[in-house]
Design a protein around this nucleic acid. Structure first.
Lengths: 230, 230
DNA sequence: ACCCCAGGATTGTTCATCAATCCAGAGTTT
DNA sequence: AAACTCTGGATTGATGAACAATCCTGGGGT
C-alpha cells in the first residue's frame, strides 16, 4: 500500500519477485546502505519494499545462501560481518581464480583482453576525477574480467558472490580516498603485463597485489572490530 | 494425508524447514531419484514432504540458485538437464580448482594428504566388492578432498555444488559398472604422485584425467539427448 | 544489587485466497 | 481428416492473516 514500490517497477521480464527483491537488497548491502551487523527484520523490510513477508523471507534466504547475511534460529537474519578468517578464506578463493586465469591467459580472446584495458582506463579516469567509490568499483570489475578469461559462467557467478562479500569489509570503514589511490597503478601493472603476454610476470605482480590487498583488508576488518569495542 | 513426513522428523537443531527440505530434494536429485527434466510441482511435492507449499517453494528456489533446477515463469521448476555447454563449463571450473590445488599442495597438511589416501582406499575396496555407485561417490569425495587442500570453506562449498551438478549427467544414463571401473587407477595415480610430493607429475596426470573424464561425460550427455529423441 | 517472570515483539510455518498463465481436449472450420 | 480456436481446469506467483515457538525487555519481589 505504500507508494515506495514505485522503485520496484523494474519488471525484469521473466524474473520473479523474490529474486528481484534479493537483487535490491544485495545492491543496498554492497553500497553500505545496509551495514554489516544490521538485523534484517522481515516485517519492516517487507513493508518498505512493498512485498509480502513471505516473498521477502525467500529473498533473505537467498542472501544467506550467498554469504551476504547470516541467520540464527528465532533471531532472524542480519547483514554478514566479516571476521579475519573470512578475509583469508576469500583471498584463498581469489588466488585460486585470478592466478589461474592469468596463467591460462594464453587462450584469451582479443575482446577479453580489450575488456581488461577498458576497465583499467575507466578506473584511472575515475581516479583523476576524484570519484573514489567508482574507482573501487572499476577495480573489482577489472578483476571480474580477469576471472572471465577462464571461460566459465559458473566461476564468474561465484566470483560475483566473492566480490559482494568483499565489499562487506569496505562497508564498515569510512571512505579513504588516499587508500583507494594506491591500488590504481597496481591493477594497471597487471593489465599491461597480461596484454603483452608476459604471463609469468603478470602472475607474480598479481600475487603481490593480492598479498598486499589481503593485509589491507584484514587491517580494515580489525579496525572495524576495534571501533565496535569502544 | 500421507504419513510420509515421519522421515522429515530430523529436527536438525538450529536448522530451518526450507533448508532441510532443500537438503532432502538435493539428495534425491543426486541419487537420480528425481531425474533431469522432471517438473517439480510444488503442491504435490509439498504434500509428499509434509511441508507447506510456501516452504517447498523456498527450498526449490535454493536449488535453482545452486544450478540443480531451472525455472521458467508460470511453468515452474524442473530438475536441470545438462547440455554439452554445461559440461564444458563445469570442467573449466574443475580444472581451475583441482589443478591449482595440486600445484599448491606444498602447503598441504599431513592429515589432508591422509584424507586423500583414505578415500582412494575406500574407492578401491568398493570396486573390488562390486559396489559401483559407491565407487563414483568415493571418487568424487577424493576430488573434494583435493580441493580442500586449498583451505577455503567457500571454495569447498562451491565445489560441492559443482559435484552435485555433475551427478545430473550420471542420473540420466544407465549404470555401467565397467565404465566406473576405468577411473579407479587414474585417481590412484594422482593420489600417489601427490603424496610423494611430485606435484608437476600429479598435475599432469590430473589434467589428463579431467580431459578424458570430460569427454566421457560429454558422450553421456549426448547419449541421453539422443535417447530422448527416439 | 540480584533473580524471576509476564507479556509484547519477532520469527518460523502454515493456510486460504486470488490473479495470471498454461495446457489438454472439445468443438469448429476447411 | 487436418488444422484452428476456444474454453475450463490445473498450476504458478504472490499476498495477507493466522498461530505456535522463541526471544527479549522491563517491572516486581527479594
Amino acid at each position: 500500500m505504500s507508494e515506495e514500490q514505485s522503485t520496484a517497477g523494474t519488471p525484469e521480464p521473466g524474473d520473479v519477485a523474490a529474486e528481484a527483491v534479493a537483487d535490491r537488497l544485495r545492491e543496498r548491502i554492497s553500497r553500505g546502505e545496509l551495514p554489516p551487523g544490521l538485523p534484517l527484520r522481515d516485517a519492516a523490510l517487507a513493508a518498505e519494499l512493498g512485498v509480502s513477508r513471505n516473498t521477502l523471507r525467500e529473498a533473505v534466504r537467498l542472501l544467506v545462501h550467498e554469504g551476504l547475511a547470516v541467520h540464527r534460529l528465532y533471531k532472524g537474519a542480519a547483514v554478514k560481518r566479516l571476521d579475519v578468517g573470512d578475509v583469508h578464506d576469500i583471498y584463498a578463493a581469489r588466488r585460486c581464480f585470478e592466478l589461474r586465469a592469468v596463467e591460462e591467459s594464453v587462450y584469451a580472446s582479443e575482446e577479453a583482453l580489450a575488456a581488461l584495458e577498458e576497465r583499467i582506463s575507466a578506473q584511472e579516469a575515475a581516479a583523476r576525477a576524484g570519484r573514489w567509490n567508482e574507482v573501487s568499483t572499476w577495480s573489482l570489475d577489472f578483476h571480474r574480467a580477469v576471472v572471465r578469461l577462464l571461460g566459465s559462467r559458473r566461476l564468474d557467478r561465484f566470483f560475483d558472490t566473492i566480490v559482494a562479500q568483499l565489499r562487506l569489509a569496505f562497508a564498515e570503514v569510512p571512505r579513504q580516498p588516499e587508500f583507494q589511490m594506491q591500488w590504481v597503478p597496481r591493477d594497471r601493472e597487471v593489465c599491461d603485463l597480461l596484454r603483452t603476454g608476459r604471463r609469468a610476470e603478470a602472475a607474480e605482480a598479481l600475487r603481490r597485489y593480492l598479498d598486499d590487498s589481503e593485509r589491507a583488508v584484514v587491517d580494515m576488518v580489525r579496525a572495524a572490530a576495534a571501533r565496535r569495542e569502544t
